[in-house]
Amino acid sequence: MTTRTIRSASPADAEAVCAIYNHYVDNTTISFEEAPVAPGEMAERIADVASLNLPWLVMCEDDKLIGYAYATKWRARAAYRFAVESSVYIDCDYAGKGAGTALYEALLMELRRRELHLVIGGIAQPNEASVRLHERLGFIKVAHFSEVGLKFGRWIDVGYWQLKLAPRENP
């Protein structure tokens, strides 16, 4: 029987994270990066997220890392400090099997624990699976930018979905 666990990422997870992410970089418009990310750079990204006291989670099935989810600042100005942008990536062999939902739910729990107010998901279009995931978790579409990215010689739209994590009084 297989066991799935979710834990905080560390820079030591960078190589496994790259194995998942670089598939999307090389083969899809889900990520707008155009060149594969090296493990050293990914380790820095993981450490940068942790340094901001934001979550970067990984899901393992037995000993294999099969997905990850994290949040980054939405914008740099202080007034935006309660809003974050989320990302979730699943090993393509495990897509559609509940890993993305479980990871996203764990990420949202961590964001609530940190008393954040709003999470924003940007989704390159079309991506029906990601739209369904976000909407199933309660996100609502709030924006659509037409032809905002160029990858593989074609223009790509991006939609934005948001989720208010909890009612919040003015701090």
Rank of each mutant, 00 (worst) to 15 (best):
A95V: 15
S31G: 03
W161Y: 13
S86Y: 00
R168T: 15
G67I: 15
I140K: 14
W161N: 06
Y104P: 00
G122I: 13
M59R: 10
L65M: 14
E115N: 15
V49G: 05
R112K: 15
C18F: 02
G96I: 09
R113N: 13
G40N: 12
W56A: 14
T3H: 07
A14Q: 04
A12C: 07
A95L: 08
H23Q: 03
R136V: 04
S87P: 04
I120A: 06
R112E: 08
A166W: 01
E135G: 03
W155G: 03
D13T: 09
A166Y: 02
V58F: 02
G121V: 13
Y94F: 11
E105T: 15
H117W: 02
G159Y: 01
H23F: 10
R77H: 05
V37H: 01
R136E: 03
R4I: 14
G96R: 05
A69V: 12
K164A: 14
P36D: 02
D13I: 14
M59C: 15
P171R: 11
W74M: 14
A19R: 13
A129V: 10
A166S: 14
R4N: 10
W56E: 06
I6L: 08
A95D: 00
F32T: 07
E169L: 13
S86D: 15
K151W: 01
G40T: 10
E41A: 15
Y21M: 08
E115P: 01
D93S: 09
I123A: 05
Y160C: 10
T2V: 11
C18E: 06
D13V: 13
T2P: 06
E169N: 12
L133D: 03
D93L: 08
Y21Q: 03
Y24P: 03
N53T: 11
R4Y: 00
A16M: 09
D48T: 08
L52S: 12
I156Q: 07
A43W: 06
A9L: 11
P39C: 12
C18K: 04
K97T: 09
V158H: 01
A43R: 05
L103Q: 07
V17P: 00
A78W: 00
V131G: 03
V131L: 04
T101R: 15
E85N: 13
A95M: 13
A79N: 05
L52A: 14
L54C: 09
G121N: 10
Q125R: 12
R154Q: 10
I66E: 02
R132K: 08
F32Q: 01
V49W: 06
V49F: 07
S86R: 02
Y160N: 06
I120R: 01
P55L: 12
A102R: 10
A38M: 09
K73A: 13
A69P: 01
A35L: 13
L137I: 11
A38N: 01
I120T: 06
V158K: 07
A143C: 12
E44D: 12
G96V: 06
A35P: 00
